[in-house]
Nucleic acid binder design. Sequence first.
DNA 1: CGTGTCTGCCC
DNA 2: ATTCTGC
DNA 3: GCAGAATGGGCAGACACG
Length: 476
Amino acid sequence: MKFSQLAIYIQQIDKTQSRLEITRLLSELYLKLNKEEIDKTIYLMQGRVAPLFDPVEFGMAEKSVIKAAVSAMQIDPSLFKTKYQEIGDIGKTVEYFKNQYHSFEEMDLEIIVVFEQLQRLAKASGNGSQTLKQGILSLLIRQLNAVSCCYLVRIPLGILRLGFSDMTVLDALSWMLTGDKKLRGEIEHAYHVLPDLGMIGKIVKKDGIKGIKTIKPKLFTPIIMMRAERLSSGEEIIKQIGRCAIEPKYDGFRLQAHFDRKLNQVKLYSRNLEEVSLMFPDIVEGIKKQIHGDKIIIEGETVGFDPKTGKNLPFQETVQRKRKYDIAETAKTVPLKFFVFELLYIDGISYLSFGFEKRREKLTQMIEKNKNLVLAPQKIINDGKLIETYFDQAVSDGLEGIMAKKLDGIYQPGARGWNWIKFKRSYSSKVNDTIDCLVMGYDLGKGKRTGFGIGAFLAGVYDEKNEQYLTVAKIG
DNA sequence: CGTGTCTGCCC
DNA sequence: ATTCTGC
DNA sequence: GCAGAATGGGCAGACACG
């Protein structure tokens, strides 16, 4: 399929508000694509050239895209910026200028060709790579038509803004097979353990739902991580899920660990499924030493601690461990603990659809005494007031708050359902920490907020001692 | 080789 | 991360 | 109630440039 034809579909979807209609349009598009195109098209429509967990990034955002557009069409940068501020969207701005600019380099490129060029762009690195990236995008802008360019430039920006995301893609894949959403559940289940929409699309295209059914959790393929809903009191939590497990909420970062004992290999994944094993050699070693079992997927929160006092560090300091260089040195000043709270898989058995209590029971037997790895403490609580007490204790211990987990709740990857509930200081109904601020300025909005004219307010307070206004925050 | 700008990823 | 909005 | 699109602060790292 030509990229221009894809652009027409995207344009239609862009105009459509009804999710059902979007789903229908997507399924129609998927039907027309062949099996070599569907995965690439899905990646492009997610603003990527590879699955989420591949570390392939464009390294190109607003500033660089503008440079490429300006050089492609030989526009005065300040003219572009003025128009961009007026329109509020880089894609539409490029389209506007492209409509007035005609190049004899224009040609009807295949989707696959555009994909390959964008992949080349993304992979460019080292000296002169910025020029190369801008050159590739620049040429594509001259080759493609105006509508195509609008969406082309939004791809590296990661803001297609089409009003759909993962879940709609899964719906559309079901729709492609049966004309409705009835296979969505099965496809979604596969997606959770193979979080690669392009691959899922390709499998559906090639082998239909049979192919999907063979997808199982696999070591070193990260599983989409479960997220929590929010509530602001113990009573509400009990009302929502009744008797539940309460755990501290650590202020660090989430890690999913995969361990194959025979291969003696550990891989760690961040919340967005980025592989981060090299950043945390201490956690890797801890897992090798302190875990029972041969093939394992566990999850938890990692937090830095003060080597002298043993106390957990604030996020600001823990985050310094997220680095590529000087890892060993930083590991000495900011050593880590890994508070483990989930078991997803062990020795061929997926624990995803088991209830929390069952997962926890097994997990408890798997961790060898507390060192680098610590089994997250927990308490079963049946009473809203007790939850509040536990929460207050957690806060005064310097924790972020608490997590409440439904006892028979399955592990639901993604942000679905109420099996996990977080209760943090910032939304505790007890805390009343409002202050009066002055509006000191504002940003022009982007996207939908362009028409409104204001994106975020700059808020400030008056410092009476020094008789000056100090900025406090931007508020979206 | 140091500095500034930009980007991506954590929350 | 939080917050808002349309469906 | 949910999915999606807005927005925040702050850190490390990659390049460009003088």
